[in-house]
Design a protein around this nucleic acid. Structure first.
Lengths: 158, 158
DNA sequence: AAAGATATGTTATCATATAACAAAATTACC
DNA sequence: GGTAATTTTGTTATATGATAACATATCTTT
């Protein structure tokens, strides 16, 4: 995917800052620790604003700090922490991770991922959820979790 | 996941047979070749009726035939063929593959996957699709493809 | 039967993710 | 403040999933 083309409506710096601020307060509220490493990784994910693989993150960490290259377990542990605390999502179809917009909601949102620029939008739609729940109940299926990843072109790239 | 508990409504042998028959005629119609290997792999996938990983398939192939263990590229090439011809789906959240029910439709269906027995049901819901399309258009996003995987408990396991 | 095309075999390697244990940092408690 | 307990990070090795590149075999057409 190419570098993201920021659109006018999207102040990316503000977006990153607010995501980090929300993460801080959420972790404080939950009594968990957003350590320097975890925060750095979350920041890198938001800076990209497009799905990043764990090994991409390892490269970025090495580049952004003057530190040694961290090993896979280090980055995966931070990713696990961020996942558990709803601060990021895993994009299964890409083996990659993106920032989560609304970590406060127990959400099962749709991810709209631009295959050109990588811009990823997390959308909560009650309509989609109702449709899935209806289909589940018609098939006598009880839903525990779900993955909805939509690939296509964002407003700027289409 | 455990062995699948077949329910009364599901005649598994007939299910496999009909899937293979449909695959045969579809390939004939399309002028592509359902070779012995590809057919065997498709059969193994349907026998399981639950998502199988590529390496699981390698094991099963070895066990079911008296042949040597096939190497990864061999099985992945067959899987690619089956994917291209809409005979199977990839379950991204499990890195696994399941048989496709309706290979004739250009479909983007929901997969309901039982996390207990692995039974996987492919459901086409116009309601879900409409909801996704609506949400996409509201976000000025043009959809190319989508992945909807619902994990939970099937009728028998809940 | 030969040539061309398609499919499969083989070896090596890349990409993604985790197990197991050691060291360091943080927190809790006295 | 100092020590124990807990949590986090570092390190090494390895598991798991997937593909590249090239060789051999099989099928198709003539």
């Amino acid at each position: 995917m190419n570098k993201i083309k920021l659109n006018a409506a999207h102040d990316h710096d503000a977006c990153i800052r607010s995501a980090l601020t929300r993460a801080e307060s959420l972790c404080q509220k939950r009594g968990v620790r957003l350590t320097r490493l975890r925060k750095k990784i979350l920041e890198l994910i938001w800076q990209s604003h497009s799905p990043l693989g764990a090994y991409d993150l390892m490269d970025l960490l090495q580049a952004s700090s003057d530190r040694e290259r961290v090993a896979p377990p280090t980055v995966y542990r931070s990713l696990d922490f961020l996942l558990e605390n709803d601060l990021i999502h895993k994009v299964h179809s890409l083996n990659a991770f993106v920032g989560c917009n609304n970590p406060l909601h127990k959400h099962s949102d749709a991810l709209f991922i631009c295959s050109n620029c990588g811009f990823t939008d997390e959308v909560h739609s009650a309509t989609i959820q109702q449709a899935i729940n209806l289909s589940a109940s018609q098939n006598r299926f009880s839903v525990k979790s779900q993955v909805l990843e939509v690939l296509g072109l964002c407003e700027n790239c289409r």
